[in-house]
Design a protein around this nucleic acid. Structure first.
Length: 421
RNA sequence: GUGGGUGUAGCUCAGUCGGUAGAGCACUGGGUUGUGAUCCCAGGUGUCGCGGGUUCAAGUCCCGUCACUCACCCCA
């Protein structure tokens, strides 16, 4: 039971057969981005610590206490990426990707790291599929981004989630609202912790889970009621475009974001079957981020979708995702001559696109047939001395038990024909 | 950082009043010398997380410790 090594705390291992579902979820989410014209970007797992401090926000919990940060041999402070957007912005600025036609549309599937206390659906290494659309402040683009995420989840067959939507205002109306909210909160009989939170990020107080606090803030002013005319117009158009796209949503004016860079449109996909960690994806607009990181004054909008949590959601909903079978045809040799023939046949079969595996290790016939069964293969290809002399092989369909002889010379063609039926 | 729960076979878990190791699945072999899954038979399944204590005797009770897990804080 006790093994010499165990995985570091809070990191998931995905292995067969369930890893097939993991990769299927990731592919489904990434596939939705590719169908909307997003190009794939692969970035380093670690970056200069200052990039995240500046991009994500010094005052956020992510930066202040939840990053994996270390000093490399050159004395530089390095951090394992806690989220995707800052790194993408860095690459866009560094390589001048924003000098061509806008928007720049980029997608990624990557792993991220946060040194949080793990719990159900919250890992220290987690996987996200994300997009960033940079350089055009068009409400239609916000709507497209949201619709892509929704398509990804729907492609998996998920139904038990909802889309929550709000607007966080912009650089002009948010500071005004923030003051207004803080003035309101200052008059309430709040405990010390909550008062401190009200100073750092007053929006969080609105999302407090405690009933007594909820009651106190029930009448608090909301950002949605204090948007500037321009921001309100932007938000209304996003909602209209979501209608055009047939995406359903509910407004949640008390939504909380942990990252400082969000502006205007903000959204979250919430699944109710996952326990306390109910968010399966989220994102929004971040109009000041590029400039903050030393780039042009360009707007941006994007999302991050949790692959781990989407997988959990699929399991909760009982969805069969991905194909866990390892091969289509499984070779069962009887004797060394047959073994050589079946080894050799692997090359042309695989070249023809057939997934082929066989019994290795000198197993008996019974063991080899069992291997065929466990592999999930549709056919077993049985070959013995008698068959070789006759110039044939036995092709057995495992589900039905039906077996027929095929000419050894035409095995590839015969197998492909059989698989097409 | 704080609180609860759980640690027994590879996996999922039983284990009564403290009395000397259990089930299912999986795995291996056989029933079938050239046929899997189904069925029958046989078989390893083991530091009962680790350390200490109480006791004639501890998986069981007590203390400590570690790990996992759920939740709080916070959050994709």
């Amino acid at each position: 039971m006790t093994t010499p090594f165990a995985a570091p705390k809070g990191v998931p291992d995905y292995f067969p057969p369930n890893s097939a579902a993991f990769t299927a979820v990731r592919s489904a989410l990434l596939g939705a981005t590719a169908r909307a014209g997003y190009g794939y970007i692969e970035l380093p797992v670690f970056e200069d610590t200052a990039l995240f401090a500046r991009g994500v926000g010094e005052s956020t919990d992510v930066v202040s206490k939840e990053m994996y940060t270390f000093t490399d041999r050159g004395g530089r402070s390095i951090t394992l990426r806690p989220e995707g957007t800052a790194g993408v912005m860095r690459a866009v600025i560094e390589h001048g990707l924003d000098r061509g036609q806008l928007p720049v549309k980029l997608a990624y599937a990557a792993q991220f790291f946060r040194a949080e206390q793990p719990q159900a659906g919250r890992y220290r290494q987690f996987h996200q599929v994300g997009v960033e659309a940079i350089g055009v402040d068009d409400p239609a683009l916000d709507a497209e981004v949201i619709a892509i995420a929704d398509e990804g989840f729907r492609a998996l067959g998920l139904t038990g989630y909802r889309l929550e939507l709000t607007s966080l205002g912009d650089a002009t109306c948010r500071p005004q609202y923030r003051e207004k909210l803080q003035a309101f909160l200052a008059k309430l009989p709040l405990d010390e912790d909550t008062r401190r939170r009200a100073e750092i990020n007053p929006l969080r107080v609105l999302d407090d889970k405690r009933p007594e606090v909820r009651e106190l803030v029930a009448e608090a002013p909301l950002m949605l009621d204090n948007l500037s005319p321009e921001t309100l117009e932007h938000y209304e158009r996003v909602k209209a475009h979501l209608g055009d796209l047939g995406v359903k949503y509910v407004e949640n004016p008390r939504m909380v974001r942990g990252l400082d860079y969000y502006t205007k449109t903000t959204f979250e996909f919430v699944h109710d079957g996952l326990g306390a960690q109910s968010g399966i994806g989220g994102g929004g607009r971040y109009d000041g981020l590029m400039a903050q990181l030393g780039g042009q004054e360009l707007s941006g909008v994007g999302f991050g979708l949790g692959v781990d949590r989407a997988l959990l959601a699929c399991q909760v909903e009982g969805l069969a995702v991905g194909d866990a079978t390892r091969c289509d045809v499984y070779g069962v040799p009887l004797g060394d001559a047959a073994r050589s023939r079946l080894v050799g046949i692997g090359a042309p079969l695989r070249a023809a696109g057939v997934r082929y595996d066989m019994a290795y290790g000198g197993k008996g016939l019974k063991g080899a047939m069992k291997g065929a069964d466990r592999s999930g293969a549709r056919f077993a290809l049985v070959l013995g001395e008698r068959d070789i002399e006759a110039g044939v092989a036995q092709l057995k369909e495992l589900a039905t038990g039906e077996q027929r002889e095929v000419p050894l010379a035409d095995v590839v063609t015969e197998v492909r024909r059989a698989l097409e039926r």
